[in-house]
Design a protein around this nucleic acid. Structure first.
Length: 477
RNA sequence: CGGGCGGUAGCUUAGCUCGGUAAAGCGCCUGGUUUGGGACCAGGAGACCGCGAGUUCAAAUCUCGCCCGCCCGACCA
């Protein structure tokens, strides 16, 4: 349990160490593919439950579509296959004799193509629209370089695919989902995000436009935390998804797709952790409160046990996810253990607490010890967890504020990213050549998102023409 | 996928140059003493030395191929 690399020494090693020592995930021995352990998966489950509730509320339905996509289907949308082609894995043989298949089958890297192909059966009339589908699944992308949770060859996600009778309705859907994603990032994961459109170079292959959310990790590197795409009629045209409108004319659907993935679990680690390990937001935490019993002899143990029994009953009644650590270890070892795992609140409970009718409460952020009355503990801890969630978000917000800048020239940008990370807002002409030059000269810095609100002032930092957009630059995972 | 480095017990590593009975710390098991910030003593289990070939009387050690991981690039939820 000891010896997690210090975050300040080597962020990348710290990240891997924490995930492995906190028992969240491991590499599997199959290149680039991970095994997600219960503690990590439980965090993903908290995200899936929250998001699934949101989309059900607005009429989306879960489906299951095939894992394998025939080659002919995959290649129908030209831009899409051009974008995803390099990272597709293929099944070319099957059966006892490993016979060559007549047509190679792609392992889905994303399912626009197979969903588009299949959904047309279920859409005939405007009365069948909108068709709001989602699936929870895993996809495979043949990544060359992998990183636990952030980039693995297989990852778990939800992919929503929706089909609409009008462009406006589809655009509204894209915005609605981006709002849900913002809520997941900010209200659940306590990670503040900048949201807006992607530049053309960063737009999803086959989309008209892509909306994104970008968070900032504690090493100053940005992370894309969710995307929502508007396809116009691009996929409907390629897959012939049409309907009869009210005037009995054939019309192509307008479609969208959107996804968040297990990457978000990595985001929570990198956005909140410290040298002692994880700090898990209460709403995501598999264990919100851990109770560490302290006792010397059988008598004190019996007393503490009875006292904790009462506490546990109250916590359960209050709906707090909790655990009592009865392992035969010393208290100090348990403190370090649960801090590494990022449990928001800890209660140290010994005989003298039992006598006094109090518990010693320690939160993972301040680590201050506070004696609180045992009576009404359920209510108190519920409030504390809520406050913790807020404090964690505020802390992340302050960090982002301190690491967000406004610059006016390419030289300044280049100099900035030599020294540090964070977000840098700049005016941009909208030209792809300017975007490419920023990337080349500032060492891999990319346009993360376009400011949806502010009108740009000044000139493009590259070409000097009047700027069309105000954009956030950052290095990104 | 290119360049560099590595893989020995659950984890971190020594041993490899110069071939000769596989080691340590942590973790794990048992017993005891302990327990309000990472305990101590004693005993014990645990290793196809990444996999496969080759050289040799003999390979963790030398050679070749493959697999997996790390770092740097190009690609990405």
């Amino acid at each position: 349990m000891k010896e997690v690399t210090k975050m300040s020494d080597d962020f990348d090693r710290w990240y891997t160490d924490v995930i492995r020592k906190a028992e969240m995930a491991d590499w599997s021995g199959v290149r680039g593919m991970m095994v997600v352990r219960p503690y990590g998966w439980a965090m993903w489950e908290a995200i899936t439950r929250a998001f699934d509730d949101m989309i059900k509320e607005s009429g989306h339905e879960n489906w299951a579509f095939p894992l394998l996509i025939p080659q002919q289907l995959l290649i129908k949308e030209a831009e899409h296959i051009e974008g995803f082609g390099p990272e597709v894995a293929w099944v070319t043989r099957a059966g006892a004799a490993k016979e060559e298949l007549e047509e190679p089958l792609a392992v889905r890297p994303t399912s626009e193509t197979i969903v588009g192909h299949l959904i047309r059966r279920y859409i005939q009339s405007h009365r069948d629209l909108p068709k709001l589908t989602n699936q929870w699944n895993s996809v495979v992308r043949w990544e060359m370089r992998s990183r636990l949770f952030l980039r693995s060859r297989e990852f778990w996600w939800q992919e929503g695919h929706t089909f609409h009778a009008s462009a406006q309705e589809a655009r509204d859907e894209v915005a609605l989902i981006l709002g849900y994603y913002r809520s997941i990032a900010e209200d659940w994961l306590a990670v503040p995000v900048f949201g807006g459109k992607k530049s053309p170079a960063e737009t999803f292959a086959g989309a008209v436009y892509t909306m994104t959310l970008e968070g900032l990790m504690r090493d100053g590197v940005a992370l894309q935390m969710g995307t929502s795409h508007y396809f116009g009629q691009n996929f409907a045209r390629a897959y012939d998804i049409s309907f009869s409108n009210k005037d009995n004319e054939r019309e192509l659907c307008y479609s969208t797709s959107w996804g968040i993935s297990t990457r978000l679990v990595g985001a929570l680690v990198m956005a909140h952790g410290d040298d002692s390990g994880l700090i898990v937001p209460p709403r995501i935490a598999p264990i919100q409160v851990v109770i560490v019993p302290i006792h010397r002899d059988p008598e004190s143990r019996a007393k503490v046990e009875a006292f904790i029994g009462g506490l546990a009953t109250e916590l359960k009644a209050a709906g707090i996810r909790h655990r009592v650590d009865w392992r035969d270890e010393r208290p100090g070892d348990k403190y370090a253990h649960w801090e590494l795992k990022g449990v928001p609140l800890r209660l140290n409970v010994g005989a003298r607490d039992a006598d006094a009718g109090t518990v010693e409460m320690v939160d993972r952020l301040s680590r201050q010890r506070v004696s609180v009355p045992a009576s009404g503990i359920g209510r108190r801890l519920t409030d504390e967890l809520e406050a913790f969630q807020k404090k964690l978000f505020e802390r992340a917000l302050v960090y982002r504020r301190e690491n967000t800048f406004e610059l006016a020239t390419l030289d300044e940008v280049v100099a900035h990213f030599k020294e540090r990370g964070g977000f840098v807002w700049v005016p941009w002409s909208g030209d792809t050549e300017c975007e490419e030059r920023i990337k080349a000269e500032a060492g891999g810095v990319t346009i993360r998102t376009i400011d949806p609100d502010a009108r740009p002032s000044g000139k493009c930092i590259v070409c000097g023409k009047p700027a069309e957009y105000r954009v956030a630059l950052a290095k990104a995972y």
